[in-house]
């Protein structure tokens, strides 16, 4: 049996099984909403399943994190534990990188191979026989089958909203670092200000992104249904946006914990994890800005 001095092995915990039930119920609900919806059946039962699942998830998140936080605060975590968390978080972020890599890969493949082939160039250029009149361009403003997939009229101009967003996110990476330094020097007031600033920047980013989506749908006919350009555009920016929201939540929780007086200049892995995550989200955005918007 582990002891505080060596490595803390927690006792039995109910949270994982609750998390399992919660996650499975939620996803079962989501799947049912989609399937029933597409078959024209009622989705109310599915929504209820989804709702129950989400509630369980929320309960679990509060409970599990609550447990971890109180364990941490009662001094159960040795430096070795801390290293386990660091390894855990780093590899988790690596897995996220690979998740985005799949979507970037799809974007590159479409641009470099699929679309030119369909347009008559390269090794499989004879495919153009099947799509008379289709011309390969990127951004793709005409689709091989314009009836099934009406192409976007225009795309988002990188040098307006996306540029603003880039500035917002890069500065938020900066502010969170300042907050971190302040925490290391036990300057609580400063931590609060800079962390709050980070969260504010994040929220503005999300708002701008939402406005951009609105523009795309309302005025540019740039939608999920507008062919591969829209598909990759929304998948990449959408999943990035979801991660921004998740990161903002993490930062908010950290702010609350700071307000409650948690963390010490030496031990604040929760804070660091959130800021790592935030830097990761920022780096992904830079990739997006270059490959989705500019090029």
């Amino acid at each position: 049996m582990a002891t505080n001095q060596t490595y803390y092995v927690p006792e039995q915990s109910k949270w994982p099984i609750i998390a399992t039930v919660g996650l499975a119920t939620t996803l079962y609900g989501v799947a049912s909403i989609m399937v029933n919806g597409s078959q024209g059946e009622s989705t109310s039962g599915a929504w209820i399943t989804f709702g129950i699942g989400s509630l369980i998830m929320a309960y679990m998140l509060f409970g599990w994190f609550g447990t971890v936080i109180s364990e941490s605060r009662s001094g159960l975590y040795s430096p070795q534990m801390d290293r386990s968390f660091r390894w855990g978080m780093s590899w988790f972020i690596f897995s996220e990188v690979m998740f985005f890599a799949a979507f970037f890969g799809a974007l590159f493949y479409a641009r470099v191979f699929a679309v030119p082939w369909l347009g008559g160039e390269g090794d499989r250029g004879s495919s153009n026989m099947l799509w008379e009149g289709f011309q390969a361009t990127w951004p793709l403003l005409n689709n091989p089958d314009p009836e099934a997939f009406p192409a976007p009229e225009k795309i988002i101009d990188p040098w307006h909203l996306p540029l603003i967003n880039t500035i917002l996110l890069v500065s938020s990476s900066f502010t969170v670092t300042v907050a971190h330094h302040a925490l290391k020097h036990e300057n609580r007031a400063k931590v609060k200000i800079w962390l709050a600033a980070t969260i504010a920047l994040a929220l503005i980013f999300v708002a701008v992104q939402a406005y951009e989506y609105f523009e795309a749908y309302a005025h540019l006919n740039l939608t999920l249904r507008s062919g591969i350009y829209g598909s990759t555009f929304f998948m990449l920016t959408g999943f990035h946006g979801a991660h921004v929201i998740l990161g903002t939540l993490m930062l908010t929780i950290m702010l609350i914990r700071i307000m409650k007086g948690h963390f010490t200049p030496e031990q604040h892995f929760g804070f660091e994890a959130a800021s790592w995550y935030w830097h990761f989200v920022d780096v992904v955005w830079l990739g997006l800005f270059v490959f989705v918007y500019v090029l």
Partner: peptide, 18 residues
């Protein structure tokens, strides 16, 4: 399947081989 994207559909510029 559910949201009309065309990653794997040539009609929208995608590719099943992707």
């Amino acid at each position: 399947i559910n949201f009309g994207t065309s990653f794997f559909n040539a009609a929208g510029g995608g590719d099943p081989v992707l």
